[in-house]
Write a protein that binds this DNA or RNA. Structure first.
Lengths: 344, 344
DNA sequence: CTGAAAGCGCTTACAG
DNA sequence: CTGAAAGCGCTTACAG
């Protein structure tokens, strides 16, 4: 059973396709009688306008593209949820692609989306992305583009982010406030702006408090599939390298949980021997023992906000209005839990 | 800068649109010279065929729809990853929708996808879905449809599942094998086939081993956002209701981890006082302490397999070949870990 | 109030 | 080897 078309409806009713079309869209210049007939037949035939034809005609697809580095990831899946729930409210569908942290794939996928004529694009960059030509091309072609979380500062488009530097500063300051004297940092990969900013926030907090910044206290983790294991490995390495570290600020919760596990195995008391702060407020963090102090990173809200901004830009463009680019910074807060609550 | 069209290319080269089109597609009946010219200009203009027009003409969209109950969920996000990575290989894009476990939304979304003229649909049902008219309609309209994980047995379409009953049987048998005499079950919601099947597998294992089936040992959890809390609550309730339970088979890992946490707080030793088996092999399950014995449920593979089957059906339909419906059952295995490994 | 016409951007069977 | 024509399924400005 092929889907019904306007033509069929028109033929059965002995009217023209134009009239049928206008009747369905409740144009004022069609008689009530005709409208009723058309609507009725449309219903019985289960008529649904072919969106390909509609879109070709109207030059919009009511579809947006979304590229994330990784789908199996609590933060990104929260963002996705925020985006698709908001998009659905506005009648938009979302095509989701995953760059696997690869620059090459990201570029290819951007091309796919342009070819598909999506009305706008939402993207969080791959760790491997160091040049931004592919993004600038999108902007040059006047396609609404909003970056979130992992952004490129220099690309002229709207951005939805948190203030990673401030959040990391707060996390580090918190460790200092509870009395830590020698604070390590497990940072993320070298390229992404977030992990740079979090590192800088850590460093600045130390310096503002007249504490030494010691590069040997900074450990790197890629934060991919192996986050948990990286946390364990780094923690064990840290114990070998330094005997007097009493606090760690860790780039992301899953790595932090790995570290907590290593400490537990080694008989290191958290927080009394070493206090730990994570980042992102993964739902398991409140649940493990000791529960993890962390920075709350609002994924769902970020997705929602990014879509809203993109939607505004799509609307503006449609009306040929100038597009006001925005950099929206979402609030983060420190959530203190057992991993930094000293018992004495 | 508007995207280039075939017409523009044809005009600049003083040839017809037909020839330009054929040149780009390397039809044999176009001269080498023309082909070269067209390809070159296409490149400099950054020409990308408008897929809306192509699709309208070819009556296919190279897009499939995917409906899952929940995106922020380790199992489903693994499935999503499996689907989109496989789809990309075959040149398909994926529109993802989330039913939020709601029958009403699921129905609406199916309509959206039909209107969008996706080439096929992949779906895992909402817990709230008890009637299947909306699915039968899809089938009646000859749209390729593959259900996975949460399926409706009676709908005439392909399915990719695990053998929940057998897996649950294995899990329960394992508890019996290590010596458990009174085994409780935390089951999922009442409607979904999975949770019914897992319950039946549990029951059958008991009966096959001449153990009593006692309904008061079966607790229900909705397995939504609150899985962890439900696990805790149920575990505490169980301790109040029964003093002599020595094993539990739990519908899903996150609930099981909640239960483990409750037991730890109450000083109950796992596995020596109570042994615990979960379901799904969530990545945290190997990591917590005690690590959780569980059934491995292959999400990524399930997504990949479901797409492959859908792809076959799309191809068959295109060639007007009959479609061979399949029920594909993926392998599960019991992974034994500390939560059922008695120390004595 | 109704309908013929043009057009969105392609593809392809057909004629020359 | 090239191009005119028809058509995919719609929408809308225009004529009547």
């Amino acid at each position: 059973m092929k889907p019904a078309t306007l033509k069929e409806i028109a033929q059965k009713l002995n009217i023209s396709v134009s009239t049928a079309s206008k009747a369905l869209k409740d144009y004022p210049d069609v008689s009530k009688k005709t409208k009723a007939l058309v609507h009725e037949l449309a219903k019985t035939l289960n008529y649904k306008p072919n969106s390909l034809a509609v879109n070709l005609r109207n030059k919009e697809t009511k579809t947006i593209g979304l590229i994330v580095p990784e789908v199996v990831h609590h933060f990104f899946s929260s963002v996705i949820k925020g985006i698709i729930s908001q998009a659905e409210k506005k009648g938009y569908l979302v095509i989701i692609l995953q760059s696997n942290e690869s620059y090459k794939l990201e570029k290819k996928q951007l091309n796919l989306l342009m070819q598909q004529r999506v009305d706008g694009i939402l993207i969080s960059l791959a760790n491997g992305t160091a040049d931004f030509m592919h993004l600038n091309e999108i902007v040059a072609q006047d396609k609404p583009l909003v970056m979130f979380d992992k952004i490129a500062k220099l690309v002229r488009c709207s951005k939805v982010i948190i203030d990673d530097r401030k959040a990391a500063y707060d996390a580090t300051q918190h460790l200092i406030d509870i009395g830590c004297k020698k604070i390590a940092h497990f940072r993320g990969a070298l390229l992404p702006q977030n992990s740079i900013d979090r590192f800088l926030g850590y460093k600045k907090a130390l310096l503002d408090n007249q504490m030494d910044y010691d590069p040997s206290l900074v450990y790197i983790c890629e934060c991919g599939d192996k986050s948990f294991e990286e946390g364990k490995t780094n923690a064990l390495q840290l114990l070998e390298d330094h005997t007097d570290v009493d606090g760690i600020f860790i780039n992301t919760d899953l790595v932090a949980i790995g570290a907590l596990t290593a400490f537990q195995e080694k008989g290191i008391q958290v927080p009394n021997d070493i206090a730990v702060v994570g980042f992102s407020n993964w739902f398991m963090s409140s649940v493990i023992s000791p529960s993890l102090t962390t920075i709350n990173q609002p994924g769902f809200l970020m997705g929602k906000t990014a879509f809203k901004q993109l939607y505004k830009e799509i609307k503006s463009k449609k009306k040929n209005k100038p597009i006001a680019l925005k950099e929206i910074i979402l609030q983060t807060d420190l959530i203190q839990r057992a991993s930094t609550t000293l018992s004495s």
